[in-house]
Amino acid sequence: MLELRAVRVQAGSFELRDLSLQVPRGAYGVLMGKTGSGKTTLLEAVCGLKRVVSGSIHLGEEDITSCRPGDRGIGFVPQDTVLFGNMTVRRHLGFGPEIHGWSRQAIDARCNELAEDLGITHLLDRKPLGLSGGEGKRVALGRALAARPRMLCLDEPFSALDEDTHAEICDLLKRIQQVHHVTTLHITHSRREAERLADVRFRLENGAVQAA
């Protein structure tokens, strides 16, 4: 379970205060809110990329508020995908496990398993340049899932996708989340997306989180 307890985050002059929410273990949580409401800031705080001024963040029984981003067991898919231009798709999938010290054999097995799950086996030796939007999202998702995180944070993962690809990735996300039993926090401003995917819904408005 992900739990935020009276979290206060500051990013320059922008501030979020007293944010509290709970996403049950294995559930798909969707956080909605207008552009500029602080959704990304909140997600980055959960991932450890923004400093929490006060309050605490818990994942399961563990207080992860002051953990390094890499020690939180959270996979992050940013809005703009952010694939590493110099790495092949295979290396993207193997990067997290490699950093966590997995054996070569285990990394290869995980890459093949994920590539099959995500339908990107044919792309394994390609570099990001030239991949379609949908393919890029799949690679970013695989990269985030590779080291078997306890949680997945998705920052508007469907932005800049056409209608068909949007539906396709939506189904894929829900299936992957169920197969991998990973607690998910997905941020979006699309009500349609929330209705399609969410087990629990929240809205970030005027600096406060409310159940939606």
Partner: peptide, 11 residues
């Protein structure tokens, strides 16, 4: 050339 890595190259 690495714009792909920023999502911009996903064409």
């Amino acid at each position: 050339g690495t714009a792909a890595g920023q999502g911009g190259g996903m064409h």
